[in-house]
Nucleic acid binder design. Structure first.
Lengths: 145, 145
DNA sequence: CTTGCACCTACAGTGGCTGTAGATATTAGG
DNA sequence: CCTAATATCTACAGCCACTGTAGGTGCAAG
Protein backbone atom coordinates (compact mmCIF):
# COMPACT_ATOMS: atom_id res chain seq x y z
CA UNK A 1 0.00 0.00 0.00
CA UNK A 2 1.88 3.06 1.19
CA UNK A 3 5.59 2.95 0.54
CA UNK A 4 6.46 2.44 4.20
CA UNK A 5 4.14 1.40 7.01
CA UNK A 6 5.56 1.75 10.47
CA UNK A 7 4.46 0.82 13.97
CA UNK A 8 4.05 3.26 16.81
CA UNK A 9 7.35 2.10 18.32
CA UNK A 10 9.20 2.83 15.13
CA UNK A 11 7.54 6.23 14.81
CA UNK A 12 8.62 6.90 18.38
CA UNK A 13 12.24 6.02 17.77
CA UNK A 14 12.35 7.98 14.49
CA UNK A 15 11.03 11.14 16.09
CA UNK A 16 12.51 10.83 19.56
CA UNK A 17 9.05 10.87 21.05
CA UNK A 18 7.71 8.38 23.59
CA UNK A 19 5.01 5.95 22.54
CA UNK A 20 2.62 7.26 25.19
CA UNK A 21 3.22 10.80 24.06
CA UNK A 22 2.23 9.86 20.51
CA UNK A 23 -0.99 8.31 21.78
CA UNK A 24 -1.53 11.42 23.89
CA UNK A 25 -1.11 13.68 20.85
CA UNK A 26 -3.67 11.58 19.03
CA UNK A 27 -6.05 11.79 21.97
CA UNK A 28 -5.94 15.59 22.03
CA UNK A 29 -6.29 15.77 18.27
CA UNK A 30 -2.79 16.90 17.30
CA UNK A 31 -2.05 13.75 15.35
CA UNK A 32 -4.75 12.21 13.16
CA UNK A 33 -6.01 8.77 14.09
CA UNK A 34 -4.03 6.35 11.96
CA UNK A 35 -5.46 3.19 10.40
CA UNK A 36 -5.12 -0.04 12.37
CA UNK A 37 -4.00 -3.56 11.64
CA UNK A 38 -6.42 -6.47 11.93
CA UNK A 39 -5.08 -6.81 15.47
CA UNK A 40 -5.98 -3.18 16.30
CA UNK A 41 -2.45 -1.79 16.24
CA UNK A 42 -1.73 1.66 14.82
CA UNK A 43 -0.07 1.91 11.43
CA UNK A 44 1.70 5.13 10.49
CA UNK A 45 3.26 6.46 7.30
CA UNK A 46 5.61 9.24 6.20
CA UNK A 47 3.06 11.99 6.69
CA UNK A 48 2.75 11.06 10.35
CA UNK A 49 6.52 11.16 10.69
CA UNK A 50 6.58 14.68 9.25
CA UNK A 51 3.73 15.95 11.34
CA UNK A 52 5.16 14.51 14.54
CA UNK A 53 8.60 15.91 13.73
CA UNK A 54 7.02 19.32 13.31
CA UNK A 55 5.35 18.95 16.70
CA UNK A 56 8.50 17.74 18.43
CA UNK A 57 10.68 20.47 17.04
CA UNK A 58 8.12 23.11 17.94
CA UNK A 59 7.95 21.73 21.47
CA UNK A 60 11.74 21.85 21.72
CA UNK A 61 11.46 25.50 20.84
CA UNK A 62 8.97 25.88 23.66
CA UNK A 63 5.77 26.43 21.68
CA UNK A 64 2.62 25.41 23.52
CA UNK A 65 0.49 22.61 22.12
CA UNK A 66 -2.21 25.16 21.35
CA UNK A 67 0.21 27.28 19.33
CA UNK A 68 1.39 24.17 17.53
CA UNK A 69 -2.15 23.15 16.77
CA UNK A 70 -2.74 26.54 15.17
CA UNK A 71 0.47 26.45 13.16
CA UNK A 72 -0.27 22.95 11.93
CA UNK A 73 -3.69 24.06 10.75
CA UNK A 74 -2.08 26.97 8.91
CA UNK A 75 0.67 24.88 7.41
CA UNK A 76 -1.98 22.85 5.60
CA UNK A 77 -3.11 25.94 3.69
CA UNK A 78 -0.11 26.72 1.53
CA UNK A 79 -1.84 29.68 -0.13
CA UNK A 80 -2.69 31.64 2.97
CA UNK A 81 -0.45 34.52 4.05
CA UNK A 82 1.83 33.61 6.93
CA UNK A 83 1.00 36.55 9.19
CA UNK A 84 -0.46 34.40 11.93
CA UNK A 85 2.50 32.07 12.02
CA UNK A 86 4.74 35.10 12.22
CA UNK A 87 2.65 36.56 15.04
CA UNK A 88 2.74 33.31 17.03
CA UNK A 89 6.50 33.00 16.63
CA UNK A 90 7.11 36.64 17.55
CA UNK A 91 4.87 36.47 20.56
CA UNK A 92 6.66 33.36 21.72
CA UNK A 93 9.98 35.08 21.19
CA UNK A 94 8.75 37.95 23.36
CA UNK A 95 7.84 35.47 26.08
CA UNK A 96 11.27 33.88 25.91
CA UNK A 97 13.00 37.26 26.09
CA UNK A 98 10.92 38.23 29.11
CA UNK A 99 11.59 34.91 30.80
CA UNK A 100 15.31 35.38 30.31
CA UNK A 101 15.11 38.82 31.90
CA UNK A 102 13.23 37.41 34.88
CA UNK A 103 15.67 34.57 35.34
CA UNK A 104 18.63 36.90 35.03
CA UNK A 105 17.37 39.09 37.83
CA UNK A 106 16.66 35.94 39.80
CA UNK A 107 20.20 34.77 39.18
CA UNK A 108 21.61 38.00 40.57
CA UNK A 109 19.55 37.76 43.69
CA UNK A 110 20.54 34.13 44.23
CA UNK A 111 24.19 34.95 43.64
CA UNK A 112 24.09 37.74 46.19
CA UNK A 113 22.46 35.39 48.67
CA UNK A 114 24.93 32.58 48.12
CA UNK A 115 27.92 34.91 48.18
CA UNK A 116 27.00 36.27 51.58
CA UNK A 117 26.70 32.86 53.17
CA UNK A 118 29.84 32.35 55.21
CA UNK A 119 29.12 28.71 55.98
CA UNK A 120 28.45 29.28 59.66
CA UNK A 121 25.35 28.42 61.67
CA UNK A 122 21.76 28.71 60.54
CA UNK A 123 21.25 31.50 63.02
CA UNK A 124 23.66 33.74 61.17
CA UNK A 125 22.90 32.45 57.66
CA UNK A 126 22.28 35.21 55.17
CA UNK A 127 20.30 32.93 52.89
CA UNK A 128 17.71 32.11 55.50
CA UNK A 129 17.68 35.73 56.54
CA UNK A 130 17.03 37.04 53.05
CA UNK A 131 14.34 34.46 52.42
CA UNK A 132 12.64 35.20 55.72
CA UNK A 133 12.72 38.93 55.35
CA UNK A 134 12.56 40.17 51.81
CA UNK A 135 11.06 43.51 52.77
CA UNK A 136 14.23 44.88 54.41
CA UNK A 137 16.36 46.81 51.94
CA UNK A 138 18.95 45.51 49.48
CA UNK A 139 16.34 44.70 46.91
CA UNK A 140 18.12 45.74 43.74
CA UNK A 141 16.04 43.72 41.37
CA UNK A 142 12.33 44.15 41.20
CA UNK A 143 11.41 41.15 39.13
CA UNK A 144 7.77 40.55 38.43
CA UNK A 145 6.37 37.07 38.40
CA UNK B 1 -4.30 35.98 73.82
CA UNK B 2 -1.68 36.46 71.13
CA UNK B 3 -0.96 40.09 70.33
CA UNK B 4 -2.71 39.93 66.95
CA UNK B 5 -5.09 37.29 65.67
CA UNK B 6 -5.84 37.42 61.97
CA UNK B 7 -8.18 35.64 59.61
CA UNK B 8 -7.08 33.72 56.54
CA UNK B 9 -8.21 36.59 54.31
CA UNK B 10 -6.02 39.04 56.19
CA UNK B 11 -3.06 36.65 56.10
CA UNK B 12 -3.61 36.37 52.36
CA UNK B 13 -3.61 40.11 51.78
CA UNK B 14 -0.59 40.65 54.04
CA UNK B 15 1.49 38.07 52.23
CA UNK B 16 0.16 38.43 48.71
CA UNK B 17 -0.91 34.82 48.69
CA UNK B 18 -4.34 33.53 47.69
CA UNK B 19 -6.60 32.08 50.34
CA UNK B 20 -6.79 28.74 48.55
CA UNK B 21 -3.04 28.61 48.30
CA UNK B 22 -2.72 29.06 52.06
CA UNK B 23 -5.12 26.17 52.62
CA UNK B 24 -3.15 24.17 50.08
CA UNK B 25 0.13 24.82 51.92
CA UNK B 26 -1.53 23.65 55.11
CA UNK B 27 -2.82 20.53 53.38
CA UNK B 28 0.65 19.54 52.18
CA UNK B 29 2.19 20.31 55.55
CA UNK B 30 4.13 23.47 54.72
CA UNK B 31 2.10 25.63 57.07
CA UNK B 32 1.09 24.26 60.49
CA UNK B 33 -2.62 23.81 61.16
CA UNK B 34 -3.72 26.95 62.99
CA UNK B 35 -6.26 27.01 65.83
CA UNK B 36 -9.89 27.62 64.87
CA UNK B 37 -12.69 29.84 66.14
CA UNK B 38 -15.83 28.33 67.62
CA UNK B 39 -17.27 28.59 64.12
CA UNK B 40 -14.39 26.52 62.65
CA UNK B 41 -12.53 29.39 60.99
CA UNK B 42 -8.73 29.49 60.95
CA UNK B 43 -6.94 31.97 63.23
CA UNK B 44 -3.35 32.95 62.45
CA UNK B 45 -0.71 34.96 64.26
CA UNK B 46 2.62 36.66 63.53
CA UNK B 47 4.54 33.39 63.25
CA UNK B 48 2.28 32.27 60.45
CA UNK B 49 2.83 35.56 58.66
CA UNK B 50 6.60 35.07 58.89
CA UNK B 51 6.54 31.48 57.75
CA UNK B 52 4.25 32.22 54.84
CA UNK B 53 6.38 35.21 53.82
CA UNK B 54 9.41 32.92 53.79
CA UNK B 55 7.53 30.51 51.56
CA UNK B 56 6.27 33.19 49.19
CA UNK B 57 9.64 34.82 48.79
CA UNK B 58 11.31 31.49 48.20
CA UNK B 59 8.69 30.66 45.57
CA UNK B 60 9.31 34.01 43.87
CA UNK B 61 12.94 32.98 43.69
CA UNK B 62 11.81 29.76 42.05
CA UNK B 63 12.56 27.28 44.82
CA UNK B 64 10.43 24.14 44.71
CA UNK B 65 8.06 23.40 47.56
CA UNK B 66 10.27 20.47 48.53
CA UNK B 67 13.34 22.68 48.74
CA UNK B 68 11.36 25.19 50.80
CA UNK B 69 10.14 22.45 53.11
CA UNK B 70 13.74 21.44 53.74
CA UNK B 71 14.93 24.99 54.29
CA UNK B 72 12.07 25.68 56.69
CA UNK B 73 12.99 22.59 58.70
CA UNK B 74 16.59 23.79 58.83
CA UNK B 75 15.69 27.35 59.73
CA UNK B 76 14.10 26.04 62.91
CA UNK B 77 17.46 24.69 64.09
CA UNK B 78 19.48 27.83 64.62
CA UNK B 79 22.53 25.89 65.88
CA UNK B 80 23.00 23.65 62.86
CA UNK B 81 25.58 24.55 60.23
CA UNK B 82 24.03 26.03 57.13
CA UNK B 83 25.73 23.77 54.59
CA UNK B 84 22.50 22.24 53.39
CA UNK B 85 20.82 25.59 52.86
CA UNK B 86 23.86 26.70 50.95
CA UNK B 87 23.80 23.55 48.85
CA UNK B 88 20.10 23.97 48.02
CA UNK B 89 20.57 27.59 47.04
CA UNK B 90 23.65 26.86 44.94
CA UNK B 91 21.99 23.96 43.19
CA UNK B 92 19.00 26.13 42.41
CA UNK B 93 21.32 28.83 41.13
CA UNK B 94 22.92 26.26 38.85
CA UNK B 95 19.49 25.32 37.52
CA UNK B 96 18.67 28.95 36.85
CA UNK B 97 21.95 29.52 35.05
CA UNK B 98 21.37 26.46 32.89
CA UNK B 99 17.81 27.51 32.13
CA UNK B 100 19.04 30.94 31.03
CA UNK B 101 21.55 29.30 28.70
CA UNK B 102 18.84 27.10 27.19
CA UNK B 103 16.47 30.00 26.70
CA UNK B 104 19.20 32.14 25.19
CA UNK B 105 19.95 29.55 22.56
CA UNK B 106 16.20 29.21 22.00
CA UNK B 107 15.95 32.96 21.58
CA UNK B 108 18.61 32.91 18.88
CA UNK B 109 16.87 30.18 16.97
CA UNK B 110 13.52 31.95 17.19
CA UNK B 111 15.08 35.22 16.10
CA UNK B 112 16.65 33.58 13.08
CA UNK B 113 13.32 32.02 12.20
CA UNK B 114 11.36 35.22 12.57
CA UNK B 115 13.94 37.28 10.69
CA UNK B 116 13.76 35.05 7.65
CA UNK B 117 9.99 35.26 7.38
CA UNK B 118 9.26 37.68 4.57
CA UNK B 119 5.53 37.83 5.24
CA UNK B 120 4.54 35.97 2.10
CA UNK B 121 2.49 32.80 1.74
CA UNK B 122 2.59 29.78 3.99
CA UNK B 123 4.12 27.77 1.19
CA UNK B 124 7.26 29.89 1.24
CA UNK B 125 7.29 30.59 4.98
CA UNK B 126 10.65 29.99 6.57
CA UNK B 127 9.12 29.51 10.00
CA UNK B 128 6.95 26.61 8.93
CA UNK B 129 9.86 25.25 6.97
CA UNK B 130 12.27 25.32 9.87
CA UNK B 131 9.72 23.78 12.22
CA UNK B 132 8.89 21.06 9.75
CA UNK B 133 12.43 20.19 8.93
CA UNK B 134 14.88 20.70 11.72
CA UNK B 135 17.30 18.12 10.47
CA UNK B 136 18.45 20.07 7.40
CA UNK B 137 21.47 22.24 8.18
CA UNK B 138 21.65 25.70 9.73
CA UNK B 139 21.49 24.36 13.24
CA UNK B 140 23.93 26.63 15.02
CA UNK B 141 22.66 26.01 18.48
CA UNK B 142 22.55 22.54 19.90
CA UNK B 143 20.47 23.13 22.96
CA UNK B 144 19.66 20.17 25.12
CA UNK B 145 16.27 19.87 26.72
C1' DC C 1 -33.28 40.34 61.10
C1' DT C 2 -31.55 40.44 56.90
C1' DT C 3 -28.13 41.24 53.60
C1' DG C 4 -23.78 40.41 51.93
C1' DC C 5 -19.32 39.09 52.41
C1' DA C 6 -15.81 35.94 54.25
C1' DC C 7 -15.06 31.51 55.25
C1' DC C 8 -15.68 26.32 55.17
C1' DT C 9 -15.03 21.47 52.70
C1' DA C 10 -14.44 18.66 48.81
C1' DC C 11 -13.32 18.03 44.45
C1' DA C 12 -12.25 18.93 39.37
C1' DG C 13 -9.18 21.16 36.12
C1' DT C 14 -4.73 23.24 34.27
C1' DG C 15 -0.34 21.68 30.84
C1' DG C 16 2.22 18.25 29.01
C1' DC C 17 3.19 14.55 29.65
C1' DT C 18 4.76 9.88 32.38
C1' DG C 19 3.91 5.61 34.56
C1' DT C 20 1.12 1.63 35.75
C1' DA C 21 -1.81 -2.67 35.34
C1' DG C 22 -3.63 -6.11 32.91
C1' DA C 23 -4.92 -7.82 28.46
C1' DT C 24 -3.82 -8.86 23.51
C1' DA C 25 -0.71 -8.98 19.14
C1' DT C 26 3.26 -9.87 16.88
C1' DT C 27 7.76 -11.73 15.98
C1' DA C 28 12.03 -14.58 16.49
C1' DG C 29 13.97 -18.75 17.74
C1' DG C 30 13.88 -23.72 18.38
C1' DC D 1 4.10 -25.28 14.88
C1' DC D 2 4.93 -23.82 19.52
C1' DT D 3 6.75 -20.93 22.83
C1' DA D 4 8.80 -17.05 24.94
C1' DA D 5 9.90 -12.44 24.62
C1' DT D 6 8.73 -8.15 23.18
C1' DA D 7 5.43 -4.66 21.48
C1' DT D 8 1.14 -2.88 21.57
C1' DC D 9 -3.54 -2.11 23.34
C1' DT D 10 -6.95 0.49 26.76
C1' DA D 11 -7.94 2.91 30.80
C1' DC D 12 -6.62 5.33 34.40
C1' DA D 13 -3.63 7.53 38.21
C1' DG D 14 0.08 10.76 39.20
C1' DC D 15 3.30 14.78 38.67
C1' DC D 16 3.80 20.25 40.16
C1' DA D 17 1.84 24.14 42.15
C1' DC D 18 -1.70 25.82 42.22
C1' DT D 19 -6.73 27.76 40.62
C1' DG D 20 -11.54 27.52 40.28
C1' DT D 21 -16.13 25.80 41.42
C1' DA D 22 -20.31 24.27 44.01
C1' DG D 23 -22.82 24.24 47.84
C1' DG D 24 -22.94 25.20 52.45
C1' DT D 25 -21.91 28.02 57.12
C1' DG D 26 -20.15 32.19 60.10
C1' DC D 27 -20.28 36.71 61.16
C1' DA D 28 -20.57 41.87 61.26
C1' DA D 29 -23.09 46.10 59.79
C1' DG D 30 -27.22 48.47 59.06
Amino acid sequence: MTPRDISIGLLASETGCKVQTIRYYEEIGLLPEPPRTAGNQRVYDERHVKRLSFIRHSRELGFSLDAIREMLALSDNADQPCETVDRIAKSHLDDVVEKIAQLTSLKKELQRMVKHCKGGRISECRIIEVLADHSHGHCLTDHKV
